[in-house]
Design a protein around this nucleic acid. Structure first.
Lengths: 192, 192, 192, 192
DNA sequence: AATGAATGAGTATTCATTCAT
DNA sequence: AATGAATGAATACTCATTCAT
């Protein structure tokens, strides 16, 4: 029941937004009553918090296993990009809730979530840093800004990515990784 | 009064979200009553629509003037990136409302807004396409995906960009443009 | 409307208690909707506060005019007793609410009410003190305890006093005043 | 468990009132669940009824043993007053519940409680009557009104009596008895 | 151009109570 | 003797919107 409530609400939050989704909406689809909801969650916000935590925890776990592996930084980067896009493809609803509904988490509960978000970003910054050290990446990069750029490129796809569209998730990941690694200008151009 | 209402509501929508902001909140700060609001706007949603339209229209106008100018595609790209970041810096509140509160626009009013959003994206795709044709950019690019990647990188900054932070807006624009143009790998590496 | 809401709620609070009376109960009898209530009062508790304040303010006003008059202390005492009983007779409902529903006033609003209650009690203590000084009352009295005893005797009648019963209000006032002044033992008894 | 539930609820009812206390509140403090409550009591109201009955039964028992003893009416009166005040001192919480939460007893269960309340009052009326007959008290008293006056004086102390305050319970009982017996006017005054 | 009063539909939340286990 | 899950009805309060003035 607890999981069913979470699942049901993720879908509704995505479609209509957190504020626009009532507890009634959530339980109606499951054929139970509001009391059932409040037996499992102390408040609507607690549910949102749960959703956030599940989402970010899963991301962190997967990121960790990629970064720990013995691969080149470029390969790791490609895997992180793929993971982000796959996550949006598979858990699009959760992702949209995660990116949009941060403001509805009470201030007292924010730190826990923000800390994990930061930790994820730091994973990417560190990867850039490692690549710079190993000579794989340029030495004049700004690790933090670069990480934010990469994250933006990937995360923004939650607004438009359509798995049935032009490109498959894997193809998009390869393409975005290529962009990040090599940019868009013609390499043979002298003025580089 | 009309403009004051728009200004007041943009700030509140940004801080608390559209659904969480009441008409009372909007008018209270201005010392008027709800009737005043309904004299100027037929509904709360009409106000949101206005905000969206003002925002996207301004963007489109600025984008147009950049794309029309006689410059290289790389230079135009840098200017577009700068414009996006400047817009987020200067109209951060509007930007956050624009990116977050699309769902609160009634379906019948969506097409108008979405069309303009698409038109903006198409401006960038076309710029990529032009660069490919002119030989300035690589020939194997995916114009649409590339545009979405660039837009993501820039727009995402609405979530974190702090004008008083590490980099100035101009510096960030230069940096992001560099990323997009040249990527992050060391150029002298043989395997390129 | 504001006064109608107060009147309606006093009667309901008396019959059913504050907690047991819903806003719906209050407005239903007046043929208006809950919104109307919340236009006039910010909360249910604010209404209760109003009722308390009106009640105690009226009492204080009347007490003041009695204590200011040029009469003997015994006469003043009789008038205060009569006033208390009359007040319970005439505003029985308010009285019952006043005596019973103090706990439902939020702590932050309590001081104001308690202060006035104390002030009323002090009016009686002072009257006892004055009578002691003038030699009208015994010199070994405990002004505060005496005042509380008198108040208890009178106020308790809110639990049982029935104006249509055995005694008229005036008769009861005379009788209670007699009790307070002279007690119940036979005066000629030697052991006094 | 049954007694623990009663004890726990008396304290909560006193602090917060009957309506404001949930079954959850009652059981939480004992580390059990609501089911446990409903195993021992058929309803919340049944519990309140129990509390009332225990309280009034204890009072009646003690009153009976006083009235049966071989003492003067004045002495008996003093003992009844002391008993009432002691009861409020020792079972303050129960007393406050008893005086305040009568309204929450369902009409069908009221008669039993009211009958006992009346019986207690009648005990005092009869004591007055006996004293009048024996010549100990004045002959022009109104036994019922007098009893209600005495009860009011004593019971009202549940609103203010603080055992750690100015007077000890015994001193207060002596003082109140003195008031009732002899009143407050100077005895040597001719106009008595 | 704006107010003041009111509506009506909705919202999160609470809670006494039930019942299979 | 007690639990855990759930119900259903109620509750205070909110808010976009309306409208006579």
């Amino acid at each position: 029941m607890r999981d069913k409530l979470i699942q049901s609400s993720i879908e509704l939050f995505e479609k209509q937004g957190f504020a626009e989704t009532s507890i009634q909406d959530i339980v109606s689809g499951l054929g139970v009553t509001k009391g059932a909801f409040y037996y499992h969650f102390p408040s609507k916000e607690a549910l949102l918090l749960q959703i956030h935590q599940r989402f970010i925890d899963a991301l962190l776990r997967r990121q960790h296993s990629i970064l720990e592996s013995a691969k080149t930084c470029s390969e790791k980067l490609r895997e992180v990009v793929l993971m982000l896009l796959q996550n949006i493809e598979q858990n699009g609803a959760s992702a949209r809730v995660f990116f949009r509904e941060l403001q509805n988490i009470k201030e007292e509960n924010l730190p826990g979530v923000l800390e994990k978000r930061d930790s994820f970003r730091k994973g990417i910054s560190d990867l850039i840093r490692a690549g710079m050290k190993s000579g794989e990446f340029r030495g004049d990069l700004h690790p933090d800004m670069t990480a934010l750029g990469i994250l933006g490129m990937c995360n923004w796809s939650y607004m438009w990515f359509n798995p049935g569209g032009l490109l498959q998730t894997e193809e998009l990941a390869v393409y975005f990784t290529g962009l990040i690694l090599s940019g868009i200008v013609r390499e043979e151009q002298g003025w580089q």
